[in-house]
Design a protein around this nucleic acid. Structure first.
Lengths: 342, 342
DNA sequence: GTGAAAGCGCTAACAT
DNA sequence: ATGTTAGCGCTTTCAC
């Protein structure tokens, strides 16, 4: 049987209360000498208070729930995995644990809430990526503090950690413009997803800022998923009408990779004939030739920031920063160059 | 305040004992009519018993700990992520949760054990990938049931889930041999890791079986990490002495990808001049040209099997299968072909 | 078949 | 500054 608070109390010849004060840091309520004594016994016995028992009375579980759709988490690119890792790293700081829960994409009214919510086994919730609205609403009504990551609902006011997508889209397009390009295509899809729309907004802003006329024919956004395969198809559509495109801004690296594949098959030299930039800085952008230029997103940061936001709420009940924008930057690698291949 | 067992008891006009019997499935101790009544009230109130409270008395936490080194989990290839996902999927079945804990690679005597171990917040442990022996030993002494995944200690007897690496290595080499190759290189590294040694064993077995003389000059295993970069270097070493190699079996896809990069730069046509096969079936093997032939490892399976093994121990205290070998198969894609490019 | 009551390991009034 | 005690929400022994 494991060591309990009673064992410590007995051995240190004090009451459990005193021991409790010590382990909870209420040191002012304990004399210096007893404090030392208790601390020594705790060390000798290698005592660690039971999470469960503490939780039962303090109504804290020491757990955070991480909710994400199945398809998001198991995507080839470890984007959300990195975010998850970021939360894991950051929670150490706070002595919390993260419980992961993947939910089906088609979560609906009938679906059961995650068990850790029903059984009150989490103190806070981190919702990552696009999450069905009905789930968010039902979660909201549980009153468990929550923060969204890389997704938000326009008419709700949850604390949220977002990629600065507008700035990212702007910087990506600007990078191409600075390279002398003017016929810059935007390859996207799922304009339902705020992130994508924002990257598109940034793209539009950069064009406008640079007095480059916007040509709707250069925008391909009719793909539903942002996959490599759809990137391929989008590029295909784009070039089926040859509009002398000299550069492509794909709304993420997956699509960029698909587009790259198409360009190669079509015999287009990258970047000499067509420059290509993605978004996300996914690992496989480096296994490909030429190395993909992209917009780096600090994924670990997204996770750790989410935890900080939540802990702030949980521990200080502060309502400080409600919206955190994580800055991003262009990584110019080999798939972009000055127009005309210079 | 959340609904408690008392609320249910009161409303159903029975004692808490009866409610407890109902939620624990001791239906024989309850009359049919009360059972129905209690069930109805539970449903009406949407009652879910508190995990913490149950755990406190039953000495079960409903959690499993997943321990992995930092570098393993954050590797570019989502190999272990998939394994983790597999555990997450499988635990639903058993109403358990998985707590992830990444540990530093240099975990030593001084390092603190994972908190969930100290605070007895897990019922079982899943150790994944290469884990410092000292940690395993210290964990062993806690008596918490554990299972290893994709790693084992030769002189210990833990339940373990392994990839059938020998068969995999054998099949990979045999695939090349069946394509007519006889000068087949093995590119490896970290022969400390059992998995790698086993793949190598399989390679040797295939050669022997086919009466192909073994040439130590075709084996490059002096790289420490199994990274893309080191695959590149290994290939470089291999070809620095041009031994008319016609095929390479790399011990994992990362290294294969590195080797591929080298071959391309060297102007070697793949697979016409050199066939190349990897191991793991990592996603980026498909983003590369030509698509990488490899040995597919069912990663999700590794995780779910680990959970099943552990649950078997936990729920039935059975000591059934102690060692599970997960079968693997060659996926012949574009990077391998008959010798001489036929 | 059902209920009263003890107790899991801990926290926090309240009393001293 | 320290101890006594009543719970937290549940399971389970023991009576009835």
């Amino acid at each position: 049987m494991a060591i309990t608070i009673k064992d410590v109390a007995k051995r240190a010849d004090v009451s459990v209360t005193t021991v409790s004060f010590v382990i909870n840091g209420h040191h002012s309520k304990v004399s210096k000498s007893t404090l030392k004594k208790v601390l020594r016994v705790i060390d000798e016995l290698n005592y660690h208070p039971s999470r469960q028992a503490r939780g039962l009375v303090s109504r804290k579980t020491g757990n955070l729930g991480f909710i994400i759709t199945e398809d998001h988490f198991s995507r080839a690119e470890p984007f959300y995995t990195k975010v998850f890792l970021g939360t894991e790293f950051e929670t150490r700081e706070f002595e919390y644990y993260v419980l992961l829960k993947t939910i089906p994409t088609d979560f609906n009214e009938e679906s059961r809430l995650p068990r850790f919510v029903l059984e009150r086994n989490v103190d806070g919730l981190i919702l990552v990526g696009k999450i069905p609205t009905t789930l968010i609403q039902r979660l909201k009504s549980t009153k468990i503090p929550m923060v969204l990551v890389d997704y938000y609902l326009p008419d709700e006011n949850f604390p949220v950690v977002l990629i600065d997508n507008i700035a990212g889209g702007y910087k990506a397009a600007m990078h191409l413009i600075n390279c002398g390009h003017r016929r810059i295509a935007f390859v996207g899809g799922d304009m339902e997803h705020p992130s994508i729309t924002e990257r598109y907004q940034g793209y539009r802003m950069a064009l406008e800022k640079s007095n480059i006329p916007f040509d709707p024919a250069l925008v391909v956004v009719d793909e539903t998923y942002l996959s490599t395969r759809n990137g391929y198809c989008a590029a295909q559509k784009l070039f089926s009408q040859t509009k002398n495109v000299t550069a492509i801004f794909a709304c993420n690296d997956s699509m960029a990779l698909g587009a790259m594949q198409f360009l190669k098959e079509r015999g287009k030299k990258i970047p000499q004939e067509v420059s290509l930039i993605g978004f996300d800085d996914v690992e496989s952008g480096l296994t490909v030739e030429p190395h993909l230029s992209t917009v780096r997103v600090p994924k670990i940061e997204l996770g750790s920031e989410a935890v900080r936001l939540l802990m702030n709420k949980l521990q200080n009940n502060s309502v400080a920063a409600h919206k955190v924008l994580i800055p991003v930057d262009v990584i110019a690698r080999e798939s972009t160059c000055r127009v005309n291949g210079n």
